[in-house]
């Protein structure tokens, strides 16, 4: 059975239907990419999974839990972390306080300290700047902080929304390297990206969205060779 299963998901913003019967699944250990143009509904899918946006119909099941019936603040303790679009770090708090909030639902101090060391090892720059106010970090560093903060919950699956948005090419490569590392360490990844080329290059499978519907899905490597994908999303 899939780790995360989305079936016939319907979401409305007022009278406008943002998601029209979305179904897909994510298996343990996979990197799944959701690609598509601006406004296709990628972010809405992630927001519905973690309870920021209510669904009108359908189901979301994560390891047997019905997420549509789980209070939003309890989802992270099921082992699901969400790195939201635009990073949404706590700009007035220090880097360390941001990371500590990532471990908000965890109780064991020793385990939290171990995870913090792991996050610092993965993002040495965050350790150097741990006492700095997060809002003063550069865009790329803020993205790292958002990812580090999500990792602090020790998630089984991590949802990432446009991690490359607004970053210089150098940082984009760095961020994608880190996503690969996170995946290699056993965390499942659900990645939303406008940078389809990059996303497909690290994903196992991908789903292509257009105006609230999945129009194409399959093996990431095959999608990269698909003519319609090439034309619409890879700029070839």
């Amino acid at each position: 059975m899939a780790m995360l299963e989305i079936k016939d998901l319907q979401v409305y913003y007022g009278v406008i239907q943002a998601l029209k019967s979305i179904s897909f699944d994510v298996n343990q250990g996979e990197v799944i990419a959701l690609i598509g143009a601006n406004g296709a509904g990628k972010t809405t899918i992630l927001h519905t999974i973690t309870g920021l946006v209510p669904a009108k119909g359908g189901s979301i099941t994560f390891e047997g839990h019905d997420l549509l019936k789980t209070p939003a603040h309890e989802i992270v303790s099921l082992g699901m972390a969400h790195v939201p679009e635009g990073r949404r770090i706590f700009a007035d708090l220090t880097v360390l306080d941001n990371l500590k909030l990532g471990a908000y639902t965890r109780k064991d101090k020793k385990e939290i300290a171990d995870t913090l060391q792991m996050v610092f090892k993965r993002f040495p720059r965050l350790e150097e700047r741990k006492s700095q106010i997060a809002g003063t970090l550069s865009g790329g560093e803020q993205q790292m902080l958002a990812m580090g903060r999500a990792l602090m919950s020790h998630p089984k699956i991590i949802l990432m929304d446009e991690p490359s948005m607004g970053l210089s090419p150098l940082f984009v490569n760095e961020i994608f390297d880190i996503i690969k590392e996170v995946s290699a360490s056993g965390t499942t990844v659900l990645l939303v990206e406008q940078n389809a080329k990059k996303a497909l290059s690290i994903a196992d499978r991908a789903y292509v969205l257009e105006t609230g519907k999945i129009v194409l899905s399959g093996d990431a490597k095959e999608l990269m060779d698909d003519d319609s994908v090439k034309k619409a999303y890879l700029g070839e």
Binding site: G51, H73, A81, R88, F90, K100, L101, Y104, T105, S153
Partner: peptide, 24 residues
Amino acid sequence: TKAGSAMLAVSEDKDAAQLMGVNV
């Protein structure tokens, strides 16, 4: 305190605080 940091987090960004597991 943890409850205090939850308060700071909610005052800055309710949605992000909720994603951390804070009961808003």
